[in-house]
């Protein structure tokens, strides 16, 4: 039995927050677990902040709106500020440190700083910082098997963008090794 994942991903609209959440949700689907994926919606999607809640569990999910995450991926400062204190003690916070220079002051959580946007940019993977961060989360929490996350990427990348598959795989790998 795997541990429950109650994840919040947050950042600017356009950073692929919802897509990254979808990849993780598919990991739950592939492993036949209970799961939910809930985006924020409305005007904030159109240029402002975007966030999304993902739950993976072995029992039916109660509220799909994650208010007390045990994992947070933050891709901009307003998102980190908004959610940092909602993370449960012992939880995991992954910060894109090429965008956010601020450090997490809490000592009761495990924080990882990954310069995901720079890593993506340097490796010709512009726009895939989100998947670099998913890679890091996977490495730290192991919320599914390696085969599963690869299969999830295959599921999430539309057929019309098949060349994106290997780029996503590379981003994931870079995150795992960061």
């Amino acid at each position: 039995m795997n541990k429950d994942l109650n994840l919040v991903l947050a950042g600017f609209g356009g950073q692929g927050i919802l897509f990254a959440g979808k990849v993780i949700a598919y990991c739950g689907l592939i492993e036949n677990r209970e799961l939910s994926w809930l985006p924020s919606y409305g005007p904030e999607m159109r240029g402002g902040t975007a966030n999304c809640s993902v739950c993976l569990s072995d029992i039916p999910i109660g509220s799909p709106l994650v208010l007390s995450p045990n994992a947070l991926i933050a891709m901009n400062l307003p998102s980190l500020d908004k959610f940092v204190n909602t993370v449960v003690p012992g939880g995991t916070i992954i910060v894109d440190s090429s965008i956010i220079s601020k450090k997490v002051e809490r000592t009761d959580v495990n924080t990882f700083y990954v310069p995901a946007s720079s890593i993506a940019e340097e490796n010709g993977l512009k726009g895939l910082a989100n998947i670099v961060l998913v890679g890091k989360l996977f490495k730290e929490l192991g919320f599914c098997s390696a085969e599963t996350i690869d299969a999830a990427i295959l599921k999430c990348v539309p057929a019309s963008k098949a060349k994106m598959i290997d780029l996503n795989r590379k981003a994931l790998e870079l995150g795992i090794n960061s």
Binding site: G28, E34, L35, W37, L38, P39, I61, P64
Partner: peptide
């Protein structure tokens, strides 16, 4: 409600 409409589940 908006939550059920917007969320994804299996």
């Amino acid at each position: 409600d908006g939550m059920l409409g917007q969320m994804m589940e299996p």
